[in-house]
Nucleic acid binder design. Structure first.
Lengths: 108, 108
DNA sequence: GCGGGAAGAGTAGTATTACTACCTATGAGG
DNA sequence: CCTCATAGGTAGTAATACTACTCTTCCCGC
């Protein structure tokens, strides 16, 4: 369960240049040390969602007789990724603080 | 949007001792610097869910003519919180790494 | 004595999300 | 020929956090 941060991760894989869907899946798996080995049923619908939202743009090509859909970040997507990054930093800092061992004074 | 980590946060507020629902809400708001100011429509159903799952136990009391439901962690809940903490550490480390500025080599 | 806000608990219904389970096709290697 | 990896996809489901509301009591200001 990626709990709402999937979009950011997908966009992050595209920050270095276009990739096709399957390569995104592999990049996510490799980059997370195998922790995020997402089923295609998670990846593809999410990509379609991002495309509908105008954050990424896809285009068909054929490589070795296999059709591929390559995605790249749009300008909007790039801005969204920046926002997502800082929002993640804030969010994770807050959660980490709250989850820390001793932040909760004994209630009155 | 707390994206699946709400349960862990709720349980964390109870790690220092029992609290009633509204106090949990306030603790979360204060402890997050106002970032997690959750509506009661998020808090209460989540507490009921945790209670049904046996992770927390609630009991009614009356203070100043107002009825209160105080919750405390069960033994199971305490173990679950420990697991959630380490799962969060793993998860957030992985996401932070993937979201970092330069982890994505230009695709072939 | 009255209105409004804070304390306190709750429900109903909704939108989104990531999931399982499936289907299709090609190329390479045994 | 068969299977695996590559590559893309859909349908349907369960869970989750949300909005929007209800109900009550206490306290403070006017």
């Amino acid at each position: 369960m990626l709990k709402g941060h999937l979009d950011a991760l997908l966009m992050a894989t595209l920050a270095g240049g276009p990739r096709h869907g399957y390569a995104i899946k592999e990049a996510l798996r490799a980059g997370s040390g195998g922790r995020f080995d997402l089923p295609t049923g998670t990846i593809y619908p999410a990509l379609h969602r991002l495309e509908r939202a105008g954050l990424i743009r896809g285009s068909w090509s054929v490589v070795n007789g296999r059709r591929r859909r390559s995605y790249q970040l749009t300008a909007t997507g790039r801005r969204a990724l920046t926002r997502e990054r800082s929002s993640w930093r804030e969010f994770s800092a807050a959660v980490s603080a709250l989850l820390g061992e001793a932040p909760w004074p004994a209630p009155a």
